[in-house]
Design a protein around this nucleic acid. Structure first.
Lengths: 254, 254
DNA sequence: ACGGCGATTGATACACCGTATCGATTCGAT
DNA sequence: ATCGAATCGATACGGTGTATCAATCGCCGT
């Protein structure tokens, strides 16, 4: 875990997010942008646990404390990285095409899924109370659009979108965490079961868990070959969209 | 972040989970159970970031490395803590009452919400590929029950339950993380906005984000006084249940 | 041109983390 | 009583985020 706590310094972080990233930092000749790019490159290549103030600095060939020249702390750099990740999602110039809300929301789900696939560290670094940067704000604006004017209240729009993103984030988190465990233990899923099964068979009475055993057998058969994460994600999204649809119909009925 | 990596040692962890926790550890006279209880007490009192091998040991008045007498590493202790948390959910003797699947699933959602409220560290410590302990297995068995025989395939049952728990976990994670940020920065939500607003007002053009502004205003008004987390969670659960219901109806129709 | 001064820098330090390693000790069995 | 094995205590390693502070450098007024 984090050794010392990481002060957040909201105000400075916000002005940093919305300010110019081409400001150069001290005498290094490097811009803020250089730091963010280096941090992202590092975390893409070596994962979250390799991301530290020291490692970012050493990748740029500067002293460990260099980043403190513009950022009040690590969390500010994380915020910059997160906002940067959102940057490419809805490029400036593209307007939201007015279509069926359901198709629109599905595209939102898929865009976010693609985002997390491209930046696997994102789910881990997203803060709960995000100091919203420019790209995050634009993302939010675009993602609310499909739900505008379909009959939901503003409050319901917010909640519906939030739940859709929750599903996406949690799916990404689980997959990343599993991948991290695979990497750190050297056990892929098959090897994992090979190790676990003998112990479980020795120790658990299958009579006590008939449903679990039956369902587990079915899922291992079904996901044979296919990528489980994808179908689980799609299942969740479709069910949630069905649920939102039911609410919309109810609201329209009166 | 974690300093050195934490080897998982699946096999030992599993036998530990299913074995007797009253074995005494070395010459300390303490049982495995004592360590788990101490670890949970510690994390309840001081939060995840205070949980370390050293802090657990010092709480028991033993040397830092004492826990390695029975556990192959930190993650084994975490697994024990997690399974212990599940222990009180569905006490032995209580049978699943056969009711309407929807009511049953809602109870599952609420039981898990209560669980995360009682053990806020749970969402953080749950591993992605869980080495399933006895209580976790029982929990899973009980939670599949409401969906048994309603017309879904085994695979769909698994996915439906998984998505419901995803929603629950992610909701808990967000709330805990927010609470942790509140604690570490000393800024509650109100103070947070007081700091953020002036900067945002100075720097963002509201014309560019009409939907966001409108919806944000509505949600801050609506959640006035009420606890936002609760209604967001309920909203998510109800929508997902509606979606599952739609699927069940479709499957029953043919 | 030059003295002074404030900003920037580099190094060091602190208080942690998980756990490998190893010599000393103690216990149980013979 | 003796001996081998288990346990213990301590120390060490390589990491973490960031506070602190002396030294140094660039710039500015004169």
């Amino acid at each position: 875990m984090t050794a010392q706590q990481d002060p957040v310094r909201l105000e400075q972080t916000l002005t940093l997010l919305w300010g110019s990233h081409s400001r150069t930092v001290g005498r290094t000749g490097l811009t803020i942008n250089d730091f963010v790019v280096a941090a992202i490159a590092l975390v893409q290549a070596e994962g979250v646990q390799a991301l530290s103030m020291r490692s970012i600095a050493s990748r740029l060939g500067v002293r460990p404390m260099a980043a403190y020249g513009f950022a009040p702390g690590k969390s500010a750099i994380l915020a910059l990285m997160v906002d940067r990740a959102y940057a490419a999602m809805y490029p400036a110039g593209t307007e939201p095409t007015a279509v069926d809300w359901r198709l629109g929301l599905r595209q939102v789900a898929e865009a976010n899924r693609a985002l997390h696939k491209a930046y696997p560290w994102l789910a881990e670094l997203q803060p709960a109370r995000s100091p919203m940067g420019p790209h995050e704000l634009l993302k939010h604006e675009r993602e609310l659009a499909p739900l505008d004017g379909v009959g939901l209240s503003d409050f319901e729009m917010d909640q519906a979108l939030a739940q859709l993103l929750n599903l996406t984030t949690q799916a990404a988190r689980l997959e990343n965490q599993a991948a991290a465990e695979r990497a750190s233990t050297g056990l892929d899923d098959a090897e994992w079961w090979v190790q676990a099964m003998p112990v479980l068979e020795r120790v658990v009475d299958p009579q006590r868990f008939p449903l679990t055993v039956r369902v587990a057998r079915a899922t291992t058969e079904t996901r044979e070959g296919t990528f489980w994460g994808e179908s689980a994600f799609n299942f969740g999204v479709e069910r949630l969209l069905d649920g939102i649809e039911a609410l919309i119909i109810r609201r329209r009925a009166g």
